[in-house]
Amino acid sequence: MRTDSEIKSDILEELAWQPNVDETEIGVVVEDGTVMLTGVLDDYRKKVAAEDAVKNVRGVKALVGDIQVKYGANYQKTDLEISKAIVKAFEWNTAVPEDEISVEVRDGWVNLSGEVDWAYQKDAAKRVAENIIGVKWINNAITIKQSIQPADVKEQINKAFLRSADIEANAITVEATEGLVKLFGTVHSIAEKKAAEDAAYLSPGVHIVINELEVID
C-alpha cells in the first residue's frame, strides 16, 4: 500500500513532466489515496492535462478537481464567440455529428446536449470543445441511442476488455440493462479504471456507465 506522501511526490513529478502545465500553479492534497487539485490556470486544456496526469499515478483512488480557469485579457471571449467556435470545430471533425448536437454557453460554461448513435461521438464532442479558447467548464449531457440488446452489449464490452493491453479483463464484471452498464471488480490505477469505462462506452447502445471499479495497489 502506497503512502499519501509517496503518491503526492509522484503527482508533483508527473505534473512537472507535462510540457504545458506549470506545477507551481497547482495545489495537491492527498488523503487516503484521494487527490484534490486546486489553483487557477489560464487555459482549460491545462486543467484537463493536469487531471489526466494525476490519473496515471499509481495509488490514486479518486480525483477531486477544484482547479479554476481564468483567461487573461488577450484571450477573453464572449459566449457567442465561444459557441460559434465550437460549432465550427464540430463541422471539421468527422467523429462529431454536428447536426445532432446543441451547444449552449453561459459565462464560458458550455452545455452540450442532443442524441447520437455512439459514445465515441459524445466523447469526441467534449474533446473538441475542450480545445476552444474561452471555455471554462463543460457539461456533456449528450445521450446515446439504444440500438442493440443488453446481452450483446455485455459480450462486446467483454471482448473489448480482452483486446485491450491496458485492462485486466479477468478482474472486471459487466452488467448491462437497457443501455445502462455497471462495471464491478478491481483495477490498479484510475487510468485503467477510465480505460475500462471508455471501452464500455464504445459499445453501441450504451447510454450510461456506472463505474464501480475499485482501485487497488
Score class of each variant (00 low, 15 high):
G65N: 15
D107R: 15
A124K: 05
F90V: 06
G59P: 08
R127Y: 15
I172R: 07
E91D: 13
T94A: 12
E155N: 14
T186D: 04
A62G: 12
I133P: 03
V187G: 03
E81F: 04
E100Q: 14
G59C: 09
Q156Y: 05
I133A: 07
T177S: 14
N140S: 07
I101D: 02
K77G: 00
A62R: 06
N111M: 11
A169W: 09
Y120W: 13
S164P: 06
L80Q: 14
A160K: 04
K136T: 06
G72N: 11
I172G: 05
K84F: 11
A176Q: 04
N131I: 01
G59I: 12
W92Y: 12
Y120F: 15
W92E: 06
G114M: 04
T143A: 10
K159I: 13
W109N: 13
V187T: 03
I148M: 12
V60W: 07
Y71M: 05
Q121N: 10
I132L: 04
V153L: 07
T177P: 00
K70R: 14
Y75K: 14
E178S: 08
S102C: 04
L112H: 01
V64Q: 11
S147I: 11
A160L: 08
I142P: 00
Q121P: 08
W118N: 01
K77M: 15
E115L: 12
V87E: 13
S113R: 01
A95H: 08
T143P: 05
K154D: 09
I157H: 01
D107L: 05
K122R: 15
W109F: 12
N139M: 01
N111I: 10
I144G: 00
V105C: 12
